[in-house]
Computed example of a mutant assay.
Amino acid sequence: MEIPVYTLDAFTNSPFKGNPAAVCPLIRELSDDLYQKIAVEMNLSETAFITRINQSDDFTKGSRFHLRWFTPATEVNLCGHATLASAAVLFQYKQNINPTLVFETRSGELAVTRKGEGYVMDFPLNPPTQEVQWSDKHIQTIDIIKAAVGNHPVQDVYLSSNTEKLLVRLADSCDRSVLTSLKVDPVTLQSSERSGRVKGLILTIKGSPNCQPGYDFYSRYFAPWYGIPEDPVTGSAHTVLGSYWSKKLGKKKMLAYQCSSRGGELELEVRDDGRINIAGQAVTVLQGSITL
């Protein structure tokens, strides 16, 4: 059996930047065990599998598809960059004729629309809740923060219980270089939190909107609990970040930059209907087939 596979770097227009995702458009469903084995073999933060909902559809004319995402360790409920990459594969390589594609996923229906050189994803918004007494109430929260940022001053700690993501905002006295220079050990980070409350850590600081290109905030994201030491550019984390910073900055539209070593840019728009638009570009770096 030959399975087509594409690797795309998402949230960038340059190869070897952004976040790489493998995408496999499938004629028929495979077993969960095989999905996981392929994800392990691809060894990227996410491998996406697209399948048809109606067998009479094809990848060119169909507008609705099933979409699942697997890390090398497990299946996940939401992934932004691999959704962006999946839409790009259907639009660019399957010449899909529809202006918008809808993916049925573990997180409900996710629509992706072409926009200029990139794509806009319609995602759920995940507002986090402030950990008011994080410094003395949640001992494990203290441990995870210390493991990530050491003695750097922390301004806010919020938890998105729905996504199990902890958001830690460094004080405004910390600039971008502080965030990028942090050395976060994934083993220490994972061992600091075993309660199950947290499965991903977002570190963020206020941006420099008055300096070109005008980023409203910066972030990094770590998820060793899912087998991802650091994710280069994370759409799902921005469903939390977008909500948090929209309220703090009083803005609906924001430009964000994720400060991993690869780096990536995301355009965000928090909508009045409780969802968020996440826009970005994607570039292909590999096309091939998996032989089974």
Results as ranks from 00 to 15, higher is better:
Glu2Ala: 13
Glu2Ile: 13
Ile3Gly: 08
Pro4Ile: 06
Val5Asp: 04
Tyr6Ser: 09
Thr7Ile: 15
Phe11Val: 07
Thr12Val: 04
Asn13Gln: 12
Gly18Ala: 06
Asn19Glu: 08
Ala21Lys: 02
Ala22Val: 04
Val23Leu: 05
Cys24Thr: 01
Cys24Arg: 01
Leu26Asp: 06
Leu26Ala: 06
Arg28Ser: 15
Glu29Asn: 14
Glu29Leu: 12
Ser31Asn: 05
Asp33Tyr: 09
Asp33Thr: 04
Asp33His: 09
Lys37Met: 10
Ile38Cys: 09
Ala39Asp: 03
Met42His: 07
Asn43Lys: 03
Ser45Ile: 06
Ala48Pro: 00
Ile50His: 00
Thr51Ala: 11
Arg52Ser: 10
Arg52Leu: 15
Ile53Ala: 11
Asn54Arg: 12
Gln55Leu: 14
Gln55Lys: 10
Phe59Arg: 02
Gly62Met: 05
Ser63Asp: 15
Trp69Thr: 02
Phe70Arg: 00
Phe70Lys: 00
Val76Tyr: 04
Ala82Asp: 09
Thr83Glu: 14
Ala85Glu: 01
Lys94Glu: 14
Gln95Pro: 00
Asn98Leu: 08
Pro99His: 13
Pro99Ser: 10
Pro99Asp: 13
Leu101Val: 11
Phe103Met: 07
Val112Ser: 04
Met121Ser: 01
Phe123Gln: 05
Leu125Tyr: 13
Leu125Gly: 06
Pro128Gly: 06
Thr129Met: 13
Glu131Leu: 14
Gln133Trp: 12
Ser135Arg: 15
His138Thr: 05
Val149Ser: 14
Gly150Trp: 12
Pro153Met: 14
Val157Trp: 08
Ser161Arg: 09
Ser161Gly: 05
Ser161Lys: 09
Glu164Met: 06
Val168Asn: 03
Ala171Met: 06
Asp172Asn: 14
Asp175Ala: 12
Asp175Arg: 11
Arg176Lys: 15
Val178Ala: 11
Val178Thr: 15
Val178Met: 10
Leu179Trp: 10
Val187Tyr: 05
Ser192Thr: 05
Ser192His: 08
Ser192Asp: 07
Glu193Ile: 03
Ser195Cys: 08
Arg197Asp: 11
Ile202Val: 11
Thr204Asp: 03
Lys206Ser: 11
Gly214Glu: 11
Tyr218Met: 09
Ala223Met: 06
Trp225Thr: 04
Tyr226Glu: 13
Tyr226Pro: 00
Ile228Arg: 05
Pro232Ser: 12
Pro232Lys: 07
Thr234Leu: 04
Ala237Trp: 02
His238Gly: 01
His238Glu: 06
Thr239Cys: 11
Leu241Pro: 00
Leu241Gln: 02
Ser243Ala: 14
Gly250Ile: 08
Lys253Cys: 09
Met254Ile: 04
Met254Cys: 02
Leu255Ser: 12
Ala256Arg: 01
Gln258Leu: 10
Gln258Asp: 07
Gln258His: 10
Ser261Gly: 04
Gly263Pro: 02
Gly264Ala: 09
Glu265Asn: 05
Glu267Val: 07
Leu268Phe: 05
Gly274Asp: 10
Ile278Ser: 01
Gln281Thr: 08
Gln281Cys: 10
Val283Tyr: 14
Val285Thr: 13
Gln287Thr: 15
Thr291Pro: 02
Leu292Cys: 13
